[in-house]
């Protein structure tokens, strides 16, 4: 049996952890939305500024989950935390920026090109935390609870002890990030099943 022990939603204008609001978009701010969260949460990781939007969202949501479940850093060995992420549009948001660099801005940009793969965000999270575990990024037509159930079950049968999962969909001004932590013990936490995961994910992510 597995449990959903922490989760973070990051949308166009709100960010919440375990259902509680942690940030709301300040439209009057000069800072971009993700930067507003970064500053308000007093994160210190200058590499954040170099990341593309997918990695920034993954960074913010995974750091917020770590604050909600700080014990995971010590309770698991460095290769026991699997990363299972998926989305619909792959890295298209950054792909478009890279195309723009060589079509309209003088030359292909190497720092954009290195982010034109959806799994780079997994690398960023692994680098920051020194996590050497399993990684997987899938591109699916829509958020499918079943997909995460299946693959956490598989990875738990092959040595991973916990899984940081994510639906990380960003394209243009649409943002739909939902990260959740699956552990094999979790007193009082919702059990991992399709119904609970769908409920926690929320109706918008299921029907989009």
């Amino acid at each position: 049996m597995s449990f959903i022990t922490a989760y973070c939603h990051l949308r166009e204008n709100v960010c919440s952890v375990n259902g509680e609001l942690v940030a709301t978009l300040d439209k009057s701010s000069e800072d971009a939305w993700f930067k507003q969260i970064y500053k308000a949460q007093e994160f210190v990781y200058p590499k954040f500024y170099k990341m593309d939007t997918l990695s920034q969202a993954g960074y913010l949501a995974s750091e917020l989950i770590k604050r909600a479940a700080p014990y995971i850093v010590n309770d698991y060995a460095d290769d026991e935390i699997a990363l299972i992420f998926a989305n619909k549009s792959s890295s298209a948001d950054t792909d478009l920026r890279f195309i723009n660099s060589y079509e309209h801005n003088g030359a292909p940009s190497p720092s954009l090109f290195v982010y034109t793969l959806p799994n780079i965000v997994l690398g960023e999270i692994a680098i920051l935390n020194k996590w050497y575990g399993e990684n997987m990024f899938a591109v699916l037509p829509k958020f499918t609870p079943d997909f995460f159930l299946t693959h956490t079950q598989i990875l738990f049968s092959t040595g991973s002890k916990t899984a940081l999962c994510g639906w990380l969909e960003i394209l243009g001004d649409k943002i739909h990030a939902f990260l959740f932590l699956i552990e094999q013990a979790g007193t009082g936490k919702p059990e991992l099943n399709i119904e609970n995961l769908s409920n926690i994910a929320g109706p918008e992510i299921i029907h989009n």
Binding site: S90, A92, D95, I99, N119, F137, V139, L140, P141, F147
Partner: peptide, 29 residues
């Protein structure tokens, strides 16, 4: 199509070969 790199090709396979399940795309560099 930059914003539809996988879904339409996957849908073509479903149609062409009468696949019962939606293909899964693994994109890990």
């Amino acid at each position: 199509n930059v914003t539809d790199q996988f879904q339409s090709p996957a849908a073509m396979l479903v149609e062409e070969f009468k696949l019962a399940n939606q293909p899964v795309v693994i994109s890990n560099a």
